[in-house]
Design a protein around this nucleic acid. Structure first.
Length: 187
DNA sequence: TGATAGATCGGCT
DNA sequence: GCCGATCTATCAG
């Protein structure tokens, strides 16, 4: 798995669609399928790594397969998987999950009943899976937050689009999602 | 040292 | 559809 993640973010982002994210908390397993991602790398003015390494972005410049979690807008966390070679500074933002297991716990964490509104956004899925700065730099091969491979989503089912919520390098088609999936963050 | 914009979300108009 | 919440990093002065 490490070798796959050491490729460019732009390659890894569509590749990990369909993979699962497993969170263990209080002896319970919360599992979601990755249905939407975005790629970011150091050549990209929209990326946190664009201006070089800082204390916040340190893990982005480490080896692939670790968690880069950042806090933004004064209240939200977002979760990324570090990709590429060491010192490269690239990562894939997980923008949406399809809840598979531990759905009741996710509802409780989110304070939301609607299944469709549990993990359909980068900050929402962090709240549902209780991902915060405690997971910053975590090795995703291990509990309590684990990334596991699954069958590739067929090429025809992957939609490529422009990224959301950025103002630089908006021309890059670096957002990927599974066609017709109900849990995408934006229609 | 101060201002501001940000890989967002939810509530209100 | 717009606005407020309110932490962090960066840029201007």
């Amino acid at each position: 798995m490490r070798e796959l993640l050491e490729q460019d973010a732009e390659v890894v982002a569509p590749l990990i669609l369909g993979w699962k994210l497993e969170r263990e908390i209080n002896g319970q397993k919360l599992v979601g399928k990755i249905v939407e991602t975005e790629a970011y790398d150091f050549r990209d003015a929209a990326s946190h790594s664009f201006r070089g390494e800082t204390p916040r972005t340190k893990v982005m410049f480490g080896p692939a397969g670790f968690a880069y979690v950042y806090f933004t807008y004064g209240m939200h966390y977002c979760f990324n998987v570090v990709t590429g070679q060491k010192d490269e500074g690239s990562a894939v933002l997980i923008r949406a999950l399809e809840p598979l297991k531990g759905i009741e716990a996710m509802r409780a964490n989110r304070g939301q009943d609607n299944l469709l509104n549990l993990t359909n956004g980068p900050a929402k899925l962090c709240q549902a899976l209780v991902i915060g700065k405690n997971m910053y730099g975590h090795d995703l091969r291990q509990a309590p937050l684990k990334l596991t491979m699954a069958e590739n989503v067929p090429y025809k089912q992957v939609v490529r689009a422009t990224r959301i919520g950025i103002t630089n390098d908006t021309h890059r088609l670096w957002r990927f999602y599974i066609k017709n999936n109900k849990f995408i963050s934006k229609a």
